[in-house]
Design a protein around this nucleic acid. Structure first.
Length: 502
RNA sequence: GGGCCUAUAGCUCAGUCGGUAGAGCAACGGACUUUUAAUCCGUGGGUCGACAGUUCGAGCCUGUCUGGGCCCA
């Protein structure tokens, strides 16, 4: 936010903001720097907490330290003042200022100049109070940064909107926000370690693409001035990772952002982190094993167990091998009739209508089958479940099932009722691939905004020979959701939010 | 895209039947040398999301718009 120092604006400020600006001005007038370049700091609060774990009540250690933190509570009792300091990871430590240690002037200055939210450096002895609280008893103190805005009530949760709009404040006041922010990098690290231990190589492929592909989704479109042409934000890295495999990076992965210009809700964000991986000489089964390892190792890394505890206390067991169901078996069970990939669209429409579903006339046969599946089975997909065998017409990059006609070797992994990951035996025949992409392009020409384009360079790469392989993709945000039970906007530090009205 | 809920002090929220706007925390002034959301006494702080309408009178009723949340397709 830009600062506006015009007098009229200053006068319009709410009382609490105006008072703090006045305090800042007063400090400067008295020659006290409210934003010093450096303050004394010999240890973190965490280091002090870890060093003194078993002190008795009312003990003076003789150890002098300089500690910093944000003031989160203040308690003044006249000639003795208490303050709770908090540092970034949430570690707190009490600071004490007494008249006999700091003198009248410094004590008065503390009372008048220091507000909740200010950052300070306190120098003094590490002690325990008469109530046994580990504390630093100040001999001197200095302002590290003056806060010009009051912190929200530390004891009431901020509204969901305020939390998202002011994540920086959320991180100061809400422990769950601090945990969530630190869980994402822990999961990322775990994913990379799992890949590394299996000799996968991490690559970075283009986010700005000349044509979009690798998934069926609406892309964000942008424009390059230098190249004078339209570009697309990538919807998936798939086609580039497969080029890597053609080039001999036989086990490859990428963890990076994808962008999809579609709806946003509690499980969809317009930009989301995705891990995608390909394994030469693997297939849908071997890549499913890799996926399970990635998830279970991530659970172990953040929860110390394959059983994770959600924020609401509910536990989810991600351990062991996971249930597998067949997509078409589940549909057949749901509609009470035998349904296969060869069942006609008219039959499917009849079943869907009987189920009370609204049918989009643009849906192809396979899409309708998937919709029926979601309708009849989604509630049953809470424990980790591989749904095996998808229709060919919605999966243009997957090879045909080795036994079942009309089906491709694709699984979706469901956890907590949402789709967490997908995996294929990849289509490696360039001639069939071209046919599939041409079909997609024809859908696109008919107005399907999610259809893929024909990527001639990708087809050329395939024509050089692509080894048999398994591939997978998994939403990192959704993995965090599965591990924590949080909504996607709580797993993303700064989710897209519309600007506040003036 | 459709439905429902929601917007009031810095923060979290009350606000009855349409009749001059309330609480807790926070802030300001004062007291207090062992507090743990300290306590006690006192004080201030509001364009009730925006615009229009109904009405003698609107935080409250109606409409439109904007932001946020939930559910559905």
């Amino acid at each position: 936010m830009t600062t506006d120092n015009s007098p009229a604006t200053e006068d319009d400020l709410p009382e609490q903001l105006r008072i703090r600006r006045e305090k800042r001005a007063s400090l400067i007038e008295r020659g006290i720097e409210p934003y010093p370049v450096a303050v004394a700091r010999t240890k973190s609060l965490k280091e002090v907490r870890e060093k003194y774990t078993d002190l008795a009540v009312d003990v003076a250690t003789g150890d002098i330290e300089s500690l910093t933190g944000r003031i989160i509570f203040k308690r003044d009792t006249g000639k003795l003042c208490f303050a709770t300091l908090r540092e970034g990871d949430g570690t707190e430590l009490q600071a004490m200022l007494s008249l006999d240690k700091v003198g009248q002037d410094q004590l008065d200055a503390w009372k008048s100049d220091i507000d909740l939210g200010d950052m300070v450096s306190v120098t003094g002895e590490i002690i325990t109070s008469k109530r046994g609280e580990l504390s630093i008893l100040a001999t001197s103190w200095a302002l590290a940064s003056k806060s010009l805005r009051p912190l929200p009530n530390d004891h009431k949760p901020m509204s969901e909107e305020t939390r998202v709009r002011m994540r920086y404040v959320d991180l100061i006041v809400r422990p769950e926000a601090r945990v969530a922010a630190r869980m994402r990098p822990a999961v990322m690290r775990s994913l990379r370690e799992t890949f590394n231990s299996e000799s996968f190589i991490e690559v970075e492929t283009p986010m700005l693409q000349v044509m979009h592909g690798g998934a069926t989704a609406r892309p964000f479109k942008t424009f390059s001035n230098a190249y004078d042409m339209d570009l697309y934000m990538r919807i998936a890295p798939e086609l580039f990772l497969k080029r890597c495999v053609v080039g001999g990076i036989e086990r490859v992965f990428e963890i990076n952002r994808n962008f999809r210009n579609e709806g946003a809700d509690s499980s969809h964000s317009p930009e989301f982190a995705m891990v995608e991986s390909y394994m030469a000489y693997g297939d849908w089964r071997s890549i499913a094993d890799v996926t399970r390892s990635l998830i279970q190792n991530a659970a172990m890394a953040v929860a110390g167990s394959h059983v994770v505890t959600h924020h609401d206390g509910r536990q989810a067991d991600l351990g062991g091998t996971w249930k597998e169901i067949s997509l078409y078996d589940a549909i057949s069970e749901g509609v009470g009739e035998k349904v296969t990939a060869l069942t006609s669209i008219d039959e499917l429409k009849k079943y869907a209508t009987k189920l009370g579903m609204k049918i989009d006339p643009k849906w192809v046969t396979g899409k309708l089958a998937e919709e029926i599946f979601e309708h009849v089975a989604q509630d049953k997909l809470v424990e980790p479940t591989f749904v095996m065998g998808y229709p060919v017409d919605t999966s243009p990059l997957v090879r045909a099932h080795r036994e079942t006609p009309g089906v491709v070797e694709k699984w979706d992994l469901y956890v907590d009722g949402f789709e967490l990951a997908t995996g294929y035996s990849e289509l490696i025949d360039p001639v069939i691939q071209r046919e599939r992409l041409i079909e997609q392009a024809q859908l696109g020409a008919k107005g399907d905004l999610e259809a893929m384009q024909v990527d001639e360079d990708f087809l050329r790469a395939m024509e050089f020979g692509m080894p048999p392989m398994g591939g997978m993709g998994m939403g990192v945000d959704r993995l965090l959701m599965a591990l924590t039970g949080l909504g996607i906007r709580e797993t993303i530090l700064f989710p897209l939010v519309k600007p506040e009205a003036d």
